[in-house]
């Protein structure tokens, strides 16, 4: 299996700083892109491309790291306890949003539209709150990830924490997408 860390000249670790990772990608892309006469190579660039999109997302990066360490990932679908609360809130907010969007598309009279507008404001506020909740959850996960990174070559086994954090980041990534979609649908 291809080691994306080495493709991008990065240390094989759970935590990577965004800026140097991006810099490395751009530097290598400028050499390997197929348009670059002499050094360009479409197949090689495609791998570089996959490497970058994997390593820049914590969830994908941790998964790749676990796979490189040749440990099959457990396929648990359980919500990590640290995120249980956020999950419940998000599920509620999504239900509300769906009902609202249905109502909005059905509103045709001026009065109906006015009512919808008022409700929209309230929803926007609750989703911005949701955005803050998710951001906080991500900050917490990132903090623990950096701690794990510090202990990476230490004597204590870290695999369990790594698996748990991977789960957390995977959920967070999915929710961030849902969050962006929700905020967008309220802005349109």
């Amino acid at each position: 299996m291809t080691d994306y860390f080495s493709i991008l000249d990065q240390p094989r670790r759970p935590w990577l700083e965004e800026a140097p990772l991006k810099e490395s990608f751009q530097r290598l892309a400028a050499i390997q892109h197929p348009d670059k006469a002499g050094t360009g190579d479409a197949a090689r660039f495609a791998v570089l491309n996959s490497a970058y999109s994997t390593l820049k997302e914590p969830a994908l990066r941790l998964r790749h790291l676990l796979e490189l360490e040749s440990e099959p990932l457990p396929s648990t679908a359980q919500i990590p306890p640290a995120l249980a609360q956020v999950f419940m809130e998000l599920a509620g907010a999504r239900g509300k949003l769906d009902r609202f969007l249905a109502k909005q598309s059905g509103a045709s009279s001026p009065l109906g539209k006015a009512m919808v507008a008022i409700e929209k404001n309230a929803l926007q506020e609750s989703w911005e709150l949701m955005a803050r909740r998710i951001r906080t959850a991500k900050e917490s996960a990132t903090e623990r990830l950096m701690q794990l990174d510090a202990d990476w070559h230490g004597p204590e086994p870290v695999r369990e924490t790594l698996v748990a954090l991977h789960q957390e980041f995977a959920y967070l990534a999915r929710w961030e997408t849902q969050l962006r979609e929700a905020l967008l649908s309220l802005a349109l």
Binding site: A42, F45, A46, N49, S50, Y52, S53
Partner: peptide, 8 residues
């Protein structure tokens, strides 16, 4: 919005 060329 994936950068191209890309393979999957």
């Amino acid at each position: 919005n994936s950068t191209i060329p890309i393979k999957a």
